[in-house]
Structure formats: C-alpha cells, structure tokens
C-alpha cells in the first residue's frame, strides 16, 4: 500500500511537468504582447518596454522561460506578477474561496445526486423515475449563465423582498458558508445530472445481481438489502466520478465566481489570461493539476476500501 502511494506520487511528477509546459506554451502562443497590455490604452515608451521585457525575461527562448519558472516552483517560488505581487500571496485567499465553493458544490452534488439517483432506481419505470430523469435533462440543458442569474434573483433577491427570508446572500462571501450554497448548487448543476443517472443505473444493475437475491432469500428486510448489500456495491463507480469531479469543479468555477462575485481563482485565472501573465496562469494550473492527481489517488485508495477484490502491491 505504502509503496503504491509513493509510486503514484512519483508518477505525478512527469504529469505535472507535462501539463504545466503545455499551458506555458499555450499562453506564450496567445496573440498580444504582455508588456503592451500592461500599458492598457496608453502606448508604452519603446525603451521602457524593452527594459521591461528584459527584466521579466520575455526575450529568452520559450524553453529558458519555462525553466526559469519551473525551477522556482520546485523551491516554492511561484514567481511574481508584472505588478510585483508574489503569486503565492495572490493565491492564498483566492484558493480558499474556490476550495470552499468546490467542496460545497461537491457535497450538494453527492447528496442530491446520490439521493435522487437512488430514489429513481427504486421507483424504476414509475412516474417518479421519469420525473427525475426529466429533471436531469433540465439540469444539463440550462447553462450556468442562466441558472446562476435566475437562482440569484429568486433566492438572493426575491426571497428577501417578497417573503422576508434573508438566508441566501446575493453575492460575496461575507455570510460564511451560506454564501456558497447557491453558487455551489449552480456550479454542481450538470454534475448532479450525470451523477443521478450514473447512480440510478449503478443501483439498478446491482439490484439484478445474484447476491441481492441471496440477501432476500436469507430473510433480510428490504431496508437492509438496499442499504447494506446493494449500496456498498453500487458506490464503487460513483466514488470514481465524484473524485474526478472535484478537479473539474475547481477549474470550472470561472462563470459562477463571476456571477456571485466570489473572489476565487476562477476570476483570477480569467484576468491573468487576459494580461498574459504566464506565472499566474501556470501557477493556477499547477495547483489544479495537483488537486486532480491527489483526488484521483484518494479515489483509487478508496476503491480498495470499498471493494476487497482490489489490492495494491
């Protein structure tokens, strides 16, 4: 087990190098000169521009620029922005916001997705099942941009003005965990739909298994057949999905963060891409890749806990 974890962590290194390099190239290849963008509407004096380029190493070949950056990362230096702010400092508060948002979304996704999926599977073929499936279609087809603004208006504004219930803040993070409920749901929307369908299929599949028939023949009450014998087996594919989704949720929060004015890395990433700030963009991606790899490792280890047939040497 220990050796397996170490091997997996070592495998993460080439993945990390590869993905950061690709992102580095992509930002490099984007049209537009970072120094010119820095000046905004004003034209920057060519001498100053040349000096800035020299200072930030923008004249070096791509591979040298990448090396300068990544060698710093390994000693914990994520570089600094053109404004001279340490990227690490820039991240500190923002990652916290995004993690809070993503974790809230993941919890909502797990509760709603598993709950509705199990419910639909148990009501298979009846109207409740069809209603749940229709709901998932709705969740998939309404874009975040629409669901975000609608829910913000209904839950953040109307609930307060019409019914006097002040529970969901309109935007920002001042209200603590309550601030993340609506954005979390909006962010999780599509994932919920997929999870519902996956859960439904997985449980229906499991319920057809021979060992479920055995459990019934043993005289186990229905609640136990479902809760102990079936659930444990159907959870295996669902845990994979949830684990992989944490990375997706963290990286996909750009629009949601913008709608609800959450100052997270999604917003930061958007601004930094616009400014061609390689250090920030690659930094964000590096951390996201790390989160993704870690989540996958945890999922793989959870596998062994859920399914004794899987053993890691």
């Amino acid at each position: 087990m220990g050796r397996y974890v170490i091997r997996r962590l070592l495998q993460a290194i080439p993945v990390l190098l590869g993905s950061t390099f690709l992102i580095f190239c992509t930002v490099y290849a984007l049209p537009g000169d970072p120094v010119m963008i820095l000046g905004g509407e004003r034209r920057i004096d060519p001498v100053l521009a040349a000096q800035l380029r020299e200072q930030y190493g923008l004249n070096d070949p791509l591979i040298v620029q990448y090396w300068n950056y990544i060698s710093g990362v390994f000693v914990g230096d994520f570089g600094e922005t053109f404004q001279g702010v340490q990227v690490a400092d820039l991240f500190a508060g923002k990652f916290q916001v995004t993690i809070q948002l993503a974790v809230t979304a993941l919890i909502i996704e797990a509760l709603v997705g598993l709950g509705l999926g199990l419910y639909a599977a148990l009501r298979r073929g009846r109207w409740q099942d069809h209603a749940v499936l229709a709901l998932t279609l709705l969740l998939v087809s309404v874009p975040t941009l629409v669901s975000g603004f609608v829910l913000q208006l209904v839950l953040g504004v109307k609930l307060k003005t019409e019914l006097g219930i002040d529970f969901f803040p309109i935007s920002g993070t001042e209200a603590g965990w309550r601030s993340f409920l609506v954005p979390g749901f909006v962010l999780a929307g599509t994932s919920i739909a997929y999870l519902v369908r996956l859960t439904r299929t997985s449980l229906m599949e499991t319920l057809r298994a021979d060992y479920i028939r055995t459990a019934v023949a043993k005289g186990m009450p229905r609640s136990r057949v479902l809760g102990r014998h079936a659930l444990r087996n159907s959870l295996i594919p669902l845990v994979t999905y949830l684990g992989a989704d944490l990375g997706t949720l963290m990286g996909g929060a750009v629009i949601t963060e913008a709608i609800f004015n959450l100052n997270g890395i999604g917003q930061q990433l958007f601004q930094s891409v616009a400014r061609r700030e390689n250090a920030v963009v690659v930094g964000v991606v590096t951390v996201l890749v790390l989160v993704y790899l870690l989540a996958n490792l945890i999922v793989d280890l959870l596998y062994a806990v859920l399914d004794p047939r899987i053993r890691y040497e």
Binding site: A209, D210, Y211, R213, T214, A215, V216, A217, K218, G219, M220, H229, R232, N233, L306, D307, P308, R309
Partner: peptide, 19 residues
C-alpha cells in the same frame, strides 16, 4: 425466509456478496 425455509443457489461466487 432464511429462518424456516432456506435456499442455496447454483453459482456461489455470484450468489455471495463480493464486498
């Protein structure tokens, strides 16, 4: 079921819960 009338099945591998 199980208490007064019990049953065993053909394929014990699939009839036993793997987890």
């Amino acid at each position: 079921r199980g208490e007064r009338i019990a049953m065993i099945f053909q394929d014990a591998l699939s009839a036993l819960n793997p987890v």
